[in-house]
Simulated assay, not measured.
Amino acid sequence: MTTLDVEEADIAWGDDAPVLRGVTVQANPGEILAVTGTSGAGKTTLLSAMAGLLPPVTGLVLADGEKVTDRDQAVKLGIVLIPQDNGLAAILTAAENISVAVIATGGTAAEARRRTAESLEPLGLSAQANQLIEELSGGQQQRTAIARGLALRGDVLLADEITSELDAANRQRVIELLKAEAARGVAVVFATHDPEAAAACDRELHLADGEAVWARP
């Protein structure tokens, strides 16, 4: 499995001043790393850099020593991102959103059908498989995005505030699924503002004032 490193990175959006400065962090196979901080602290910024969406101004993002240069390369390296805004196609069904993603990353049609069913079931969405995304509630859409991320079977899983719209039972369900991913050797990075969710993770990196400080190394 893959180790993901961010080394001495300044990370900014466009020509703006860096949101994060001098960040160094390692996400290891088999563990869940919580990234915490208040709204605007840079959680999404850090995960975007890890996912190849936002090249650092200075410093490096490395997957097993290989420089991550853009999103296409990150996908090839097995880096899966579940974004905060879910990124689902409203005109497709829940199942179609997942199947299309699996096929786009090299899965066969048969694999896509199997992985779609396997990822929807533990999130309580089997009955909603053939509903359009626009017909689902906010929480159901969020769970569909999580199911899609799990179905891609990456080596690194970046999850950005993926429990924000979920009730307590579904939050716990998602945390257990992230733990299962870590158990199969995935490096999981979970950005969250929820202290209870962060406490369930193996380590915690806290972002504040543009810097990253280990709360639990």
Rank of each mutant, 00 (worst) to 15 (best):
M1Y: 08
V6I: 15
V6T: 04
E7R: 13
I11M: 12
I11F: 14
A12I: 05
W13H: 15
W13C: 08
P18F: 13
R21D: 07
T24D: 09
V25R: 09
V25M: 12
Q26G: 10
E31Q: 13
E31G: 11
L33F: 15
A34Q: 11
G37L: 09
G40F: 12
G40A: 13
G40E: 12
G42W: 09
K43E: 07
T44M: 12
L47T: 11
S48H: 13
S48K: 13
A49L: 10
G52F: 07
L54E: 10
P56M: 08
T58W: 04
V61C: 14
K67G: 01
V68C: 13
V68G: 03
D70Y: 08
L77N: 00
G78A: 06
I82P: 03
P83M: 04
Q84A: 11
N86L: 05
G87L: 03
A89S: 06
A90C: 00
L92E: 02
L92F: 15
L92K: 04
T93L: 02
E96H: 00
E96A: 06
V102S: 03
V102E: 03
A104D: 08
T105P: 00
G106N: 04
G106F: 00
G107S: 03
A110K: 11
E111N: 00
E111H: 01
R115A: 12
A117E: 15
L120V: 01
G124F: 05
Q128M: 10
L132E: 04
I133V: 14
S137Q: 02
G138P: 02
G139N: 05
Q142M: 03
R143H: 05
L150E: 01
L150R: 01
I162S: 03
S164D: 05
N170C: 05
R173A: 14
R173E: 11
V174Q: 00
I175W: 01
L177I: 10
L177T: 05
K179M: 09
A180G: 07
E181S: 11
G185T: 07
V186C: 15
V188P: 15
F190Q: 07
A197H: 07
A197Y: 00
A200D: 09
A200P: 04
A200E: 15
C201W: 07
C201N: 08
D202I: 13
E204L: 11
E211I: 02
W214N: 11
W214Q: 11
A215C: 02
P217R: 14
